[in-house]
Design a protein around this nucleic acid. Sequence first.
DNA 1: ACCGCACCCTGAGCGC
DNA 2: TGCGCTCAGGGTGCGG
Length: 291
Amino acid sequence: MPELPEVETTRRRITPLLVGRRIEKVETTRASYFFLTPPADLKRALEGRRVESLERVGKYLVAGLEGGSRLLLHLGMTGQLFSSSATSVRLLSATVRASLAPDEQRVFEPDLHTHLQLHLDGGGPQVFFRDVRKFGKVQWLAPGEQNARLDRLGTDALELTGEGLFRACRGRRATIKGMLLDQSIAAGVGNIYADEALFVAGVRPARAAGRVTRRECDAICDGLHRVLLRSIETGGSSISDYVSPDGADGGYQDERKVYGRTGEPCLVCGTPIKRRIVAQRSTHYCADCQR
DNA sequence: ACCGCACCCTGAGCGC
DNA sequence: TGCGCTCAGGGTGCGG
């Protein structure tokens, strides 16, 4: 689900609930590979500590804790980090949704997919981390502890330059879309914004990266920055699971030009948008506008 | 070093 | 109703 704009929106809106507050109690589901730090250790490490900062690194959120330790969060495909006072149908299963009266709002109650509950001091709402598919990650890092996942990340997508992308693509036979999805090249890009940026730049996703010109790399980065910044402005894309911490939907799903628009007319030339698999991911493009 | 692929897991939506 | 299939904003680790 969440790419750079959704993670950044989450960071901005969860910050006031989390930063400056003390974690009084931690509740978790049972151990699974979702917990890179086992639940019991996590509880011991977090309880009693104050949260001092919350940063985004690629698609990771990194909370700085009192004493210099850090809490790493990754939302995976279906992760939702939100306030306990949020109301959104996206937090409910289809069965529960169907049982709701029209316009009925229901405050979220932790369910079997709510893997982490942070109970904070100060009497405000709690912070919940829910993740149906469990592709998300939670990890506690001791003060000064390095982390391979963070160290692997390349330039943040918002900072990537045409020159940097061009250099990374030299001699590569994989696709340009594959390069954009590679977190060691453009940290934060995922399937939606890779497709959107390549459409804006007029470059076919399946083009061999090594054959993309310097000028095209400039256009791709420019397009990437534009779609990412605009998506942050609108609160990200809510397509199936994503909700912001207050429960609100994002707005960028209404501005997509190609992603999920298979068969619909290209907004520039009217040609039906094509879908095929590129870099093992569902890929959308206009065969007329993109070369 | 690089590339493609299997795999991690759950649920929704579809055709039959 | 139910079964079987496909699909889904991500990332890792393996073999060739």
